[in-house]
Design a binder for these strands. Structure first.
Lengths: 220, 220
DNA sequence: CCAAAAGTGTTGACTGTACACCCATGT
DNA sequence: ACATGGGTGTACAGTCAACACTTTTGG
């Protein structure tokens, strides 16, 4: 058992919902390789840094956000991924409500930008593959966990909730059945607030009863 | 983005079914730390070695087996796991049919041994946690994939199949319902062979139609 | 008063679960 | 002949999916 040291990086797939679309945060690379191409935020671990710590650090640096849902995605290894040689990448995905994001305006070079997963630009490394993998994971997590709470603001309407499901899963859901099913889960409760100011009947606002990840029996 | 190198190890949780129990392969550590304690097979990556390659290598060395189901489990990082400091461990789990295993008899020091997951000895590092994690993953994979094929011999009876599900999930299943449900999946086909020699009616032998991992709609 | 989204129940189809008896063999 | 696991069908309950109209507001 010989001991060797390996170069290790972390990449983070940061999802949010904006304008009725699922979006992912990309930055423009400031350095070679793939200089000036879009890529996932990420980079080499600091000395003795844990991969998850790096993911959290990147979230704060690039999206100005903390205390959000972060989950390890997959560890990619091997050549053909990075022209610098064999590099191990521990990837993460994060879910953030649009309201919490504060992109640093001073970051004029990397210009972190949310892009719709439906029409992504050319992307550096094998980051397209990582995004695809993350999307698949997100879709299946929706079905058997309560993670959707981490994409919504504190108060939300039933429609926002249903839209989150529809956007991510890519299929339309029945309004009545959705409401019935979701109510049985006891994950959310109605508040006394309503969303007024639109030009139709005001919608009741709901909130989640818990803000911790949990697994559910079944779902959608 | 400073570039640092990290010590990286791989551990493999190798499951098999033997004597009606789910077992996991442990070895007795030959070196410090935790010398002479039971642990998962694993170790540092070779230079420029990919984590999955290391997992396959370990499978061959310790269980004399190749071409089996291997899947990445999780990447553990951080301190408190290994007295040598911060080490990143990419863990894998593998499923092997008992018939294929050839444990090297020359390995008198490490004595690789399958132990029932129900009564494990004291285990080095945080390997207990990794085994627990692997078991959970295996349980859920049973429900929505066809991985069970990788725990059974080429020809098997319906009872062996059902037992695999019962042992891993930890609950009894109804014989008639199980057969009905499984047949609808079209994953297996009856052969002309039967298992004779027992002191009851001979059981038909079945085989899987495919030996590749696949996802299923739903399951159990 | 018109447009737009909010909100609300019922029915039929399907899926899952519970359950008991005869069959083929070895001893 | 008997003990042992092998093999088979039905009925009821629970869950899922389809579907249309009234309500409340802003303009």
């Amino acid at each position: 058992m010989k001991k060797h040291y390996q170069p290790v990086t972390t990449d983070v797939v940061i999802f949010t919902i904006e304008d009725g679309q699922l979006k992912v945060l990309l930055i423009k690379r400031a350095n070679e390789p793939f200089k000036d191409q879009w890529a996932l935020p990420g980079g080499f671990l600091f000395e003795d840094e844990e991969p998850e710590h790096a993911a959290v650090r990147i979230l704060k640096d690039k999206a100005g956000i903390k205390n959000v849902y972060v989950e390890q995605l997959y560890t990619f290894g091997g050549s053909g991924r990075d022209p610098r040689g064999k590099i191990i990448t521990v990837s993460y995905f994060a879910l953030v409500p649009k309201e919490k994001i504060k992109i640093s305006v001073s970051d004029k070079i990397q210009t972190p930008t949310f892009r719709s997963v439906k029409k992504l630009p050319d992307i550096a490394f094998d980051h397209n593959r990582i995004i695809t993998y993350a999307l698949k994971r997100l879709q299946s997590k929706l079905e058997y966990t309560n993670v959707v709470y981490s994409l919504l603001p504190r108060y939300f309407t039933f429609n926002q909730l249903q839209n989150a499901y529809e956007i991510i899963s890519g299929r339309k859901l029945d309004k009545r059945n959705f409401r019935k099913k979701f109510m049985l889960l006891k994950l959310i409760k109605a508040t006394k607030k309503v969303l007024k100011g639109e030009r139709q009947r005001p919608a009741k606002l709901y909130e989640f009863t818990h803000h911790k990840p949990a697994e559910l029996k079944k779902f959608f």
